[in-house]
Nucleic acid binder design. Structure first.
Length: 194
DNA sequence: CGGGAGATGGGCT
DNA sequence: GCCCATCTCCCGA
């Protein structure tokens, strides 16, 4: 590969730090249908302690086991009967934390994204939400537990985002622990989930 | 446009 | 049987 994939050590850091530093990096999926990619513009941190919104908060189960595995892997889960959410496992093995990727700025394979999502969508509606971006990128349960440093699914260095351009707010779409400032987004980016 | 209801299926009590 | 880290459509303005 002729690019700089992010390696194991990159992911082995505290989850809030990873959620911030993932902003601006490029998520790539080389699928059988073609290549899609996009810059990450919105993330959320899910923590193991004092965070009832986190899937891992009540201990390890079959569903959330990947969260407790080594950092730098994909935790993909199915939700609301229709959608997938893509997370990057963080911290160190055994802890149970991850970063939810909530929105991308589409870069490669926009036509394929439209084919997967529906042709009538505006480009700002292709990947502006966790379920939408999984659909557009072709990420489903097969990708759960894959290592994110090689094809098909990987992250590479992208844009540098200055601290002053990162907006911090409460997490979205959850019913518990809604008051924690664990959502990170690139200020005024047109591809945010809201 | 903005808000709200409904779809949908896996996981857990 | 109820909950859920969602999305789309449809309605009223």
């Amino acid at each position: 590969m002729d690019f700089n994939t992010l390696d194991h050590l990159f992911y082995q850091k505290n989850t809030v730090s990873l959620a911030k530093v993932l902003l601006g990096s490029l998520l790539v999926n080389e699928s059988d249908e073609g290549i899609t990619s996009g810059f990450i513009v919105e993330t959320e941190a899910y923590l193991s302690k004092n965070d009832p919104a986190c899937h891992a908060s009540k201990g390890k189960t079959k569903r959330n086991a990947v969260m407790f595995g080594p950092p730098g892997r994909a935790y993909v889960y199915f939700i609301y009967g229709n959608y997938y959410c893509f997370n990057v496992v963080s911290a160190v093995e055994g802890i149970g934390e991850a970063v939810l990727v909530r929105a991308l700025e589409p870069i490669t394979g926009v036509e394929l994204m439209k084919k997967r999502r529906g042709d009538h969508h505006k480009i700002t509606n292709l990947t502006s939400g966790p379920g939408k971006l999984c659909s557009a990128m072709g990420i489903d349960r097969k990708y759960n537990n894959v290592v994110l440093n090689k094809p098909p699914l990987y992250l590479i260095e992208g844009r540098t985002v200055k601290r002053s351009r990162i907006e911090i707010s409460n997490r979205i779409g959850i019913t518990q622990a809604t008051d924690k400032p664990l959502r990170f987004s690139i200020k005024d980016n047109p591809f945010l989930s809201r």
